[in-house]
Design a protein around this nucleic acid. Structure first.
Length: 333
DNA sequence: TAGAAGGATATGT
DNA sequence: ACATATCCTTCTA
């Protein structure tokens, strides 16, 4: 494993791969499976990434599918790929968000310590993959699309584009991909992406690559092993909204609340036990709801009206001490 | 000025 | 029928 710093690719390449999380998917897969995992697949995993060092995967993971992607753009404009902004560092609380684990970096010699490092590395990678898959699954539910991009119709592609642009605050490029099916999209090269969208084509391509890898993994997991190996577990996150029925607003809000890593900046619990939550960014939450329901004109005025309809039904109410943008689930989780 | 409350009506399933 | 979506007026911090 090379030093994650000295082993860095060009920063533009690094950024174009938006954290190379598809590489971490691949890495995890290789660790999981004893047989050669990818000699029969057509989605070519990026093996060279394995040489880049685990620290990168972890630091990059933080970029993936999170609300705050603005800094990704900043990194692309700057010089140092690992320039993780301070606010991100300060917000790290969970161990799986540890940015860099590299035994060489810390001067450890190979041996028992190295093995332990490897094991914990494997665990962290496993968590990373799990989070990635969960995030993709959540996005699928929110957008009402299938996780496999090759199955998308042109509308699904547009939704995914909008979503990705929105999530990572990319300039709007959906127009450049109008009338493109998922199959066409998946067949496009990175260069074609860049041609269609000079500003963010590479980023969109990298994200699609992650989705393709995840779909490939899912496909492979269910084909190779039908027993619960952990792979399925990653995809079977218990959730109330997978019944095929249109999602209710209260379910949607709860899903956002259950994903603080992704949505904590726009909606969060004030008191989870009591079901009290606060909408921190009303416009943002409304846009997400509009995306989910295919209602581009959705805004907080309308969303809040829908929330207020829940008062009579006893689903959501205002807390005892009423505050702006604060609501309470009548029956907390 | 944004948000809260709730009436009236339209819309999609 | 149901769950919003949309539009509206009035009130409040």
């Amino acid at each position: 494993m090379s030093n994650p710093v000295s082993g860095l690719p060009e920063s533009s390449d690094f950024v174009s791969r938006i954290g190379m999380t598809e590489d971490s998917l691949v890495f995890r897969e290789r660790n999981r499976c004893s047989e050669d995992p990818w000699d029969t697949v057509d989605i070519k995993p990026n093996i060279e990434a394995l040489e880049r060092g685990a620290g990168l995967y972890l630091s990059c993971y933080d970029m993936l599918l999170t609300e705050d992607a603005a800094w990704v753009v900043k990194v692309s404009e700057g010089s140092t790929a690992l320039a993780v902004p301070m606010n991100r560092m300060e917000s790290r609380e969970e161990p799986e968000q540890c940015p860099v684990i590299d035994s060489q970096e810390h001067g450890l010699s190979p041996g028992l310590e190295g093995q332990m490092e490897d094991r914990s590395l494997e665990q962290v990678q496993s968590m990373v993959v799990g989070e990635v898959l969960k995030d993709i699954e959540t996005a699928c539910k929110l957008l009402n699309i299938t996780p496999d991009p090759t199955e998308w119709n042109t509308g699904n592609v547009q939704k995914w584009m909008l979503w990705t642009e929105h999530l990572y605050r990319l300039p709007h490029a959906g127009k450049a991909f109008q009338e493109v099916t998922g199959k066409d999209l998946c067949a496009m090269s990175e260069e074609e992406f860049r041609q269609r969208s000079p500003l963010c084509g590479d980023t969109l391509y990298a994200h699609l690559d992650i989705w393709k890898s995840a779909a490939w993994m899912k496909e492979r997991c269910s084909a190779v092993d039908t027993k619960a190996t952990g792979c399925e577990e990653l995809w079977s996150e218990a959730d109330s909204s997978c019944s095929g029925q249109p999602i209710h607003l209260w379910q949607f809000l709860r899903e956002l609340l259950l994903k603080p890593h992704n949505y904590g900046r726009c909606i969060r619990w004030l008191n989870k036990e009591k079901g009290i939550f606060k909408i921190e960014d009303s416009a943002h939450v409304a846009r997400l709801w509009g995306l989910r329901k295919n209602r581009p004109a959705m805004n907080y005025d309308k969303l809040s009206r829908s929330i207020r309809q829940y008062y009579k039904k006893g689903i959501i109410r205002k807390p005892d001490v009423s505050q702006r943008l604060v609501y309470q689930f009548v029956h907390p989780i």
